[in-house]
């Protein structure tokens, strides 16, 4: 019996050290050496303090900013301590009610936009931390942002185009606009007059 069992114990210890300590240790060393910025979370530092991560979406509620997708992470959304989606199914009443309410809010907030609402704008993402909007969802908000910042729609549209990233290698995934980076650029190019 012990002759069978003992190698199991020894193998557990040896492989724990090899794959649970040595391997992640080596990966950490190499990543910190070659890709320090990414390994630390692609953090964005402004005026000496961290304003967020380029990869992690954050909430924007004011009209002068592009607003991200809805988020089910945490109570107020975009909480990286509770990542995840709404998990509401296609026939959920909660989902239908939520979408109905956000359509109303959106139409009130962006009356200039009259087309059909892009599907990503009023749905929650899988992670609740989606940093991106689809280009149509960003475009839909241009009139509001332009008005709030006293800029022309063309100028804002130009900035959106500049921050639109194409599919990876030209065919993978979808075109997208990083909301945090776009909004930081807005503050830089079209600062709010206080």
């Amino acid at each position: 019996m012990w002759r069978q069992l003992l190698p199991g114990l020894r193998m557990t210890i040896v492989l724990t050290i090899l794959t649970g300590m040595v391997y992640p240790g080596v990966v950490t060393g190499l990543c910190q050496l070659f890709f320090k910025k990414q390994a630390d979370g692609s953090l964005i530092v402004k005026d000496g303090h961290v304003v967020g991560s380029a990869l992690i979406g954050q909430n924007f509620t004011r009209p002068e900013y592009f607003q991200p997708r809805l988020s089910a992470a945490g109570n107020d959304g975009y909480d990286p301590m509770a990542s995840g989606g709404s998990n509401l199914g296609p026939t959920s009443k909660k989902l239908a009610d939520r979408v109905k309410a956000s359509v109303e809010t959106f139409r009130k907030q962006d009356p200039e936009f009259t087309g059909p609402i892009p599907p990503d704008l009023l749905t929650t993402s899988a992670s609740g931390l989606d940093p991106d909007l689809s280009p149509p969802s960003a475009t839909a908000q241009i009139p509001r942002v332009a008005k709030a910042r006293g800029a022309s729609e063309q100028e804002i549209g130009h900035l959106v185009a500049q921050f639109t990233v194409d599919r990876d290698l030209g065919f993978l995934g979808e075109p997208r606009v990083n909301v945090l980076l776009l909004n930081l650029a807005l503050d830089e190019h079209f600062p709010l007059t206080k």
Binding site: V27, Q32, Q38, A39, G41, V50, V51, L55
Partner: peptide, 23 residues
């Protein structure tokens, strides 16, 4: 962009002035 570190969670102050704790 996948992270690899042993830092404590990062506390960020968002553009709109809220606190966001990044795991």
């Amino acid at each position: 962009g996948v992270i690899q570190n042993f830092h404590p969670y990062t506390v960020a102050t968002t553009v709109e002035g809220k606190t966001q704790t990044i795991a």
